[in-house]
Write a protein that binds this DNA or RNA. Structure first.
Lengths: 347, 347
DNA sequence: CACAGGGTTGAGAGCGCTTCCATTCGGTGC
DNA sequence: GCACCGAATGGAAGCGCTCTCAACCCTGTG
């Protein structure tokens, strides 16, 4: 490893000089070496090595107009953002995919409503080539910002302003929430359960709504007393379970919209001595690491590949950027990733 | 808001032309306007506004040699990284501080050992002005990388190769783990507890070791059977508690190295019908949101300002960068942030 | 009334890189 | 052996910005 000369790093100019070629040729080699004869390629590469040359990113960006970075905008006002393993896995997937394409991840956390101005400025400033953002509420200013800034953006989770799952107005990646819910509820039904309740997530999240829709797809004309609303947290799940038991002591199954709430529900059932799955069968959603397998009893749930969704978001975006650059290929479509039922002991 | 002309954004040149000044003057105004007479300032500002001018970041970086971005390197191989509220809060603090200084956060996740090469290349590539990294294990290659790349770096948590808390070889921010532990244990002692056990964290984390040292500071010559080792998780805390009860059924207090383990310990005590705090008093560490207040009974614990630590890390780094630029000020020192005992019901 | 001097402004030189375009090179067909 | 053609190479023009330095203006002073 060549020591870093004090102060200035070697430039392409220096490499070219050392290799005895022009700056243009050196540049070609550094960028893949197409159309340069082998011996010259080798000479340049050697010079790069000897000098410890590293391209100056700013100079390159200045002329290519590409930054090699994408923004990940997280606008969740909640604290949950990072604590939520959901996000964490998604980010992991994004990071892996970006890394594989030599693209950097710039994290933009929105702390308050005033931050959107800053975000807008940043996105417009040519700092990044594209953006990834997470499921948004109806009045979220982000789409307008990215559109105005001309920044290609892929969303994680169906944005709430899209009419239906599959809506193509804006590219997004989401799990097949509705289909997964359908399979889960159908499974409970096939088990012979007749009074299948549902603990849903917050109605302003499309994933919660889609899962509820899936539940309703199977149980048309379901009695509203069988549906309770939670907040995707353990506590809210426990509360909703207690509420359901009060309203409908006769229920014999619950499809819970996520594993966290399901674990809360299980706790309540255990406390009341209600046997799972004998008296009440439970199916969760997410197949969350460190939760679904650890509950008592282990949770039957709907698996979705969260990290894969992250990867997919990144891949979609990168593909779109590539298309912008090369001018060929079609606009990225949204992707709905499959879900699968994982049978454990709770149902 | 001016519509974005198709393709190219307006340049400083355009702004200057519109305002009827030279590019140099326009540049001065955009960068604060020092030494430019009021009327000209206004004209330029108006032109900026009308054109919707946004400075080209790459061009600016090319000449100033500052990127306005810092890397946050997260090298935890564990999944815990993001799920851990600890990190999440720290990142929040970092993000807030950076944002306040118009600096961007580039997230570098290390997925495997091979990634260090990529990280090294990135840090050397002049993409960022500095780096923030989290508590490292002894053989972590990161310090060497940042040193060679000449990238100022501030660490979160005392790096394990530093001899002692307070070691100034490398700037870091850490809570006063040892002092906090001392206060906690002393408190238990003042309560009249005589057999105070300890559930420690993993020995390769300095925070765990420092807390253990604090415990030992108060309880010199403590019986080793009173000390059990956990892994900073709920489950490991429960296991350690069970182990301690087996070894020392006579214990009357436990200082637990973090709240997560403390909640596991509480569960075990509850299951065995041991009254807290009457029979066994418990003190945790971290005062973790959503944990310490929610346990049964609520946890007496040592509070540390995690988000504040994040802010401080960023501030230290930014100050260092500023110093590098202006050439005055002293090298950043490490900072140990204070901890305070929060009395709740468990002790 | 000329001149010194501080404060403003503009001209222009780069920052390091990519890429167009002209040039040169090596080889082929006649 | 020569014209000719595609491929390889080099020269040079910027990309958009900052910043030095020289030119300029104006005021105050001798």
């Amino acid at each position: 490893m060549p020591e870093q000369s004090p102060g200035s790093r070697p430039t392409l100019e220096a490499v070219a000089a050392r290799a005895g070629v022009s700056r243009a040729t050196a540049s070609r080699v550094v960028n893949g070496g197409d159309g340069v004869r082998k011996p010259l390629v080798d000479k340049v590469l050697q010079a790069v090595d000897e000098l410890g040359y590293i391209p100056n990113h700013a100079a390159r960006t200045l002329v290519t107009r590409r930054t090699g970075a994408v923004a990940v905008v997280i606008a969740e006002p909640e604290i949950r953002i990072f604590s939520d393993p959901f996000f964490s896995q998604q980010i992991r997937g994004i990071s892996k995919e970006l890394t594989a394409h030599d693209t950097q991840l710039v994290l933009l956390l929105v702390e308050g409503p005033g931050d959107f101005d800053r975000i807008a400025r940043y996105l417009s400033g040519g700092h990044v080539d594209g953006a990834l953002a997470f499921s948004l509420h109806t009045d979220d200013p982000l789409p307008a910002i990215t559109r105005r800034a001309g920044i290609p953006t892929v969303y994680g989770g169906r944005p709430s302003w899209t009419a239906d799952p599959g809506d193509q107005a804006v590219p997004y990646v989401d799990a097949d929430n509705r289909g997964g819910a359908r399979v889960a509820v159908q499974y409970l039904r096939d088990l012979g359960r007749e009074r299948i309740a549902h603990i849903g997530g917050p109605p302003d999240q499309t994933s919660a709504m889609d899962r509820l829709d899936g539940y309703r797809d199977v149980l048309i004309d379901v009695d509203p007393t069988l549906v309770a609303e939670g907040g995707f947290t353990v506590e809210s799940g426990a509360r909703a379970m207690a509420e359901l038991l009060e309203r409908r002591p006769d229920l014999d199954a619950v499809f819970v919209a996520n594993d966290l709430m399901a674990s809360g529900a299980l706790r309540v059932l255990r406390e009341r001595g209600i046997a799972v799955p004998e008296q009440v069968a439970i199916v969760g959603f997410d197949d969350m690491d460190g939760v679904a397998e650890e509950t008592d009893p282990p949770l039957t749930t709907v698996n979705q590949d969260i990290e894969g969704q992250g990867r997919l978001m990144a891949r979609l975006l990168l593909r779109g950027l590539d298309r912008d650059r090369t001018g060929n290929g079609s606009a990225p479509d949204s992707v709905i990733t499959p879900t699968t039922l994982v049978r454990r002991a709770s149902a």
